[in-house]
Every structure is written in structure tokens, then in C-alpha cells.
Computed example of a mutant assay.
Amino acid sequence: MATFKGNPITLVGTQVNVGDKAPNFTVSKNLLTDVTLADYAGKIKLISVVPSLDTGVCDQQTRRFNEEAASLGDNVAILTISVDLPFAQARWCGAAGVDKVETLSDYKAKSFGQAYGVLIEEFQLLMRSIFVIDANDTVQYVEYLGEMTEHPNYEAALNAVKALA
């Protein structure tokens, strides 16, 4: 069960598990360009899902993965997905100095949220979660947080990526 400040929330979609083939999705890189899972073919993908970059935990989560990006190598794509509009994501990245994490928006169709079971019905935001997907698009690590305001296990996610690199 997922909660926001202790209150139950409803997640829409199908949760994925380690060993599953990663579901495809379509998200916006900017207002004119959409990307899919296939755009990251052959790369290890660390997908950091946040409700909104303009909140404290989401800000810290994205900054943490940005700091770690350089040590993970060129074969790792770190994607932060939220439903923030692409221009808001770009503004936040510029203000925060985040330049190694790619921010993507699920604002149009909530394709990612539904495919990975993280769309919050009540808020139409995405539930905080982490996914590590290998170069062959197999899910290798999953963390669905039970409470929206908690931090993910950064070390476990980073170790999952390093084990694949």
C-alpha cells in the first residue's frame, strides 16, 4: 500500500518486477520531442521517478543521482521522470546546476506511470520509485516506496547499476 503523509493513495498501472522485460513508454524530452525506452537501447538505465522536482525530497534525489553520474560511466543513462512540464524541468535543472541527469516528462499520456504502476490516481503525479534496467532492457532492480515523502535507497540503486557496468 502506498501513502502520502500517512494517507492511502491509489497507484494505477502494473508494477514491474526484477527479471521482467522493461515495459516501453513514451515521455517528453521537451515540448516537441518525445522519447521511448528504445532511445536508450544498449545502455544501462537508472530511472529515478519523482512526483515533482520542485519539492524537497525530489530535488535532493535528483541532485544525488546527478552527483553520482560521472562515476557511473558513459554506458549509463540516468533518467529522472516526473509529470512536471518540460520547460519547468529545464528551468529547475538550470537553477540547480543539474547537467548529467536527463529529465523527462510524463505529462501527456502518463505512459510511463501506467506502464510501471506508479501513477497516483488522486494527484495525477508519479510515485517515488527507482528502476535499474540493463542494456538488454531487463529490469534488474526495483524500489517502490511505500511513503511518497521518503527517500529511496540510493546506495542499493547505485550498487545495482555498478554491478551491470
Rank of each mutant, 00 (worst) to 15 (best):
Y116L: 13
Y141W: 11
D34T: 15
E122Y: 04
I44Q: 03
T62D: 00
Y107W: 15
K110A: 14
L72N: 01
L119W: 07
I130T: 13
I133E: 00
Y40N: 07
D134V: 05
E121V: 00
E122P: 11
T36E: 06
L125E: 02
P51M: 00
G117P: 08
G73T: 01
T33I: 11
L104R: 11
V50E: 02
N24P: 14
N30Y: 04
A70W: 07
G13P: 10
C93V: 13
Q89V: 01
T55C: 07
L11S: 07
Q140W: 11
N136S: 14
Q61L: 04
D20F: 06
D39T: 09
S82G: 14
N30D: 15
I130H: 05
D59R: 04
T33Q: 11
A38Y: 00
F25E: 02
E143F: 01
E68K: 08
E143H: 09
V18P: 15
S71T: 14
N136H: 07
K21C: 02
K45R: 15
T33M: 06
Y141P: 08
R128P: 08
T103H: 02
L119Q: 03
S111V: 07
G42S: 10
Q89T: 05
E67F: 12
R63N: 11
V18D: 13
D134F: 01
T80H: 07
Y40F: 13
Q61D: 12
D106G: 12
G19T: 08
K43I: 13
F87V: 12
K21P: 05
A135H: 08
L79H: 07
Q140D: 08
V18C: 14
F112Y: 13
K43M: 11
R64C: 05
S52E: 07
